[in-house]
Amino acid sequence: MSAPSTTRFCLRLLRRQLVLAVRRPAEMGNPLLFFAMVVALFPLGLGPAPEALAGFAPGVLWIVALLASLLTSDNVFRGDFDDGSLEQLLLAPQPLYLGVLAYIGAHWLVSGLLLSLVSPLFALMLNLPAAAIPALVCSLLLGSAVLSLVGCIGASLTVGLRRGGMLISLLVLPLYVPVLIFGSAAVQAAVDGLPVAPYLAILGAMVSLGIALAPLAVAAGLRISIDA
């Protein structure tokens, strides 16, 4: 045995979360399926006219991705809370900040990253101009990281509650607003042929701020939830 290293501990935690996700492939596919189904609702509700759909596409794609990320974030800590793993994480002689970051990273990899990668497919279904697709993917890649960071704050505060599902939406949705505004604006700018980089830079700033602060809030939330 050698002295435990924090980096190795966090990588092990990240790998554990990913192994758990991969061993339940159906659960990993759920947000993608949700994305597909809700996108399919919009032409049914708004009418199939391609121009109208293209007009709404940036906002619609972003809102649906946001909801998909929100729905999965409720489960980030729930399983580990129920079976006692979270207690052990809190007691492990390792900085909780980094452990939490590993959880959030794993959540982003199995929700945000996958959503961003499949989003071009749904963009085409909604008639989004092809020129805007790189902007959509980039903005989703960055923005979904913020969604994961903020969503996990909500998850940490509601994990001890029996009916956390609805509650987490109420807590987290107002906090999602800036991401939604700049994410969909980035796509809209690309549609209009305007530069996208400023929007991505702002999203990047939000990611940085989130990485710096969100794990602190999540760690505090988990300690409270374990205690309740």
């Binding site: 505060l157 001890g160 939830s225 309740a228």
Partner: peptide
């Protein structure tokens, strides 16, 4: 809503404190 959801009111206070700080940022 978060305060009302917790049965343990002491924990509720702490959770709401975290949430309101997040909101402040």
């Amino acid at each position: 809503v978060l305060y009302e959801a917790y049965e343990n009111k002491e924990a509720a206070g702490k959770a709401c404190a975290v949430l309101s700080l997040v909101g402040t940022v």
